[in-house]
Measured scan of single mutants.
Amino acid sequence: MASQGTKRSYEQMETDGERQNATEIRASVGKMIGGIGRFYIQMCTELKLSDYEGRLIQNSLTIERMVLSAFDERRNKYLEEHPSAGKDPKKTGGPIYRRVNGKWMRELILYDKEEIRRIWRQANNGDDATAGLTHMMIWHSNLNDATYQRTRALVRTGMDPRMCSLMQGSTLPRRSGAAGAAVKGVGTMVMELVRMIKRGINDRNFWRGENGRKTRIAYERMCNILKGKFQTAAQKAMMDQVRESRNPGNAEFEDLTFLARSALILRGSVAHKSCLPACVYGPAVASGYDFEREGYSLVGIDPFRLLQNSQVYSLIRPNENPAHKSQLVWMACHSAAFEDLRVLSFIKGTKVLPRGKLSTRGVQIASNENMETMESSTLELRSRYWAIRTRSGGNTNQQRASAGQISIQPTFSVQRNLPFDRTTIMAAFNGNTEGRTSDMRTEIIRMMESARPEDVSFQGRGVFELSDEKAASPIVPSFDMSNEGSYFFGDNAEEYDN
């Protein structure tokens, strides 16, 4: 783990906690998980779902989305002020799938948001429990990260689609708070800032007046979040320049895209947490497990152990491969979309394939898809080993990566060399080191050039047997250095459309 220093740990961010010791953190995270579980059980009762239907990941996603929508204050306010045809701002819903006479049927349900809020609060001892809501947002974000390569979004903001390893959390809503900021990748933060800068260039009043003052505060806050992700002084200094700019424009845009590229080699610290679907927490609570009393951590053995003992089902389209669908969801559960496939294969105990080789589309089923041909199958979400999630980018030494994705962002704290394609990355730096950030740029390029592919990161860190909950005997895996390590390699994943 990167030293926490003055930073709060993510469990504290996750639970809005002030400084807590490890036991208190485990208890408050457990409380959050228990609340999600209780809410899910109650919703299944309301909807009269069978046990099997309640364990269907598509039903879980609909129920999670309903509660997130019920608590989305800004959108609710907007919907009330701008009524649109056929949208009731006070209601929320989605597809629920039921097994009827041996076939899967889709039923569109509609609930009062007020009623959903009441059920959620009741499951969370009367609190709004925003930490639990954020947790579900991060699960949705991790699922998107594993399912889609955001080529269009990258290109629109002047970045290269091969930089997708920097895009963790790119679909997280803005209201996801400190826990959300911690899991956002460098590219995601750059993209958010670039969008602001572009608006400022096109709209003279963007930075002016009372609204402009708020915009400015948001801009500086985002700059500080991004600065905190960088691990070298030169990158941090460049972020200070971007933040202090009187009138952010093209120079800042250039600096930010430069920094994003540099992060492929001088990786930023991005938190990883295993956020599971509500249909995993519900049955665990129903079986009598007391998360608050037992304590829970999002970055240790607990999620692995929970998945070892969970039964989750998914709808499967006619030509999809259930094992591939399982891999997709497994990666999402562990926030591992940008991790090295060699490491993932070792931990999972079966070969993890790149996205383009998977015969599976996303987990969600569109409303126009034919239910007649839908089957369902068990998702295999178990693992051979477990490993500690990392909050750091690993040290800054790398190795060759593949054509589709030119770097990785480690999820697990496991000893290995970190793949990246130096030639491709360095070719993108057209040696432009003039301007006010020239000395920093020169320094950053120097550090990137001296990074050695064969150097090892996370020295001495290994994986653990599932029986080793105290992480007492690390097993340090050895990897084939020459092997392909990137998930979005030469990829044809669908595009994420909101």
Results as ranks from 00 to 15, higher is better:
Ser9Pro: 15
Glu14Leu: 03
Glu18Leu: 05
Ala22Val: 14
Lys31Glu: 09
Gly34His: 14
Arg38Trp: 13
Tyr40Leu: 03
Cys44Ala: 10
Glu46Gln: 11
Tyr52Thr: 09
Tyr52Cys: 15
Asn59Gly: 02
Asn59Ile: 08
Ser60Gln: 03
Val67Arg: 02
Leu68Gly: 13
Ser69Thr: 07
Glu73His: 11
Lys87His: 06
Lys90Phe: 07
Lys90Leu: 12
Lys91Tyr: 05
Arg98Leu: 02
Met105Lys: 12
Met105Arg: 12
Glu107Ala: 10
Leu108Thr: 07
Leu108Ala: 13
Ile109Phe: 12
Arg121Thr: 06
Arg121Cys: 15
Asn124Phe: 14
Ala129Ser: 13
Thr130Gly: 05
Ser141His: 03
Thr151Trp: 04
Arg152Trp: 06
Arg152Thr: 03
Leu166His: 06
Arg175His: 07
Ala178Arg: 11
Gly180Pro: 02
Gly180Ser: 10
Gly185Asp: 05
Val190Ser: 11
Asn202Gln: 15
Asn205Met: 03
Ala218Trp: 06
Arg221Trp: 10
Arg221Cys: 06
Ile225Lys: 09
Ala233Asn: 06
Met238Cys: 10
Met239His: 00
Gly249Gln: 09
Asn250Ser: 13
Leu266Ile: 15
Gly268Ala: 13
Val270Phe: 11
Ala271Ser: 14
Leu276Asn: 04
Tyr281His: 09
Ala284Asn: 00
Ser287Asp: 10
Glu294Gly: 08
Ser297Thr: 13
Ile301Ala: 12
Arg305Thr: 15
Gln311Trp: 00
Gln311Asp: 06
Leu315Glu: 00
Ile316Arg: 00
Phe338Val: 03
Phe338Met: 15
Ile347Tyr: 03
Gly349Thr: 04
Thr350Gln: 00
Lys351Gln: 03
Pro354Gln: 15
Gly356Gln: 03
Gly356Thr: 04
Arg361Cys: 13
Gly362Pro: 07
Val363Lys: 06
Met371Glu: 11
Ser392His: 13
Gly394Trp: 06
Ser407Leu: 00
Val414Ser: 05
Arg422Pro: 09
Phe429Thr: 04
Gly431Ile: 05
Asn432Met: 10
Asp439Ala: 01
Thr442Cys: 06
Arg452Thr: 15
Ala472Gly: 15
Asp480Lys: 05
Phe488Leu: 11
Gly490Thr: 05
Gly490Leu: 14
Ala493Cys: 05
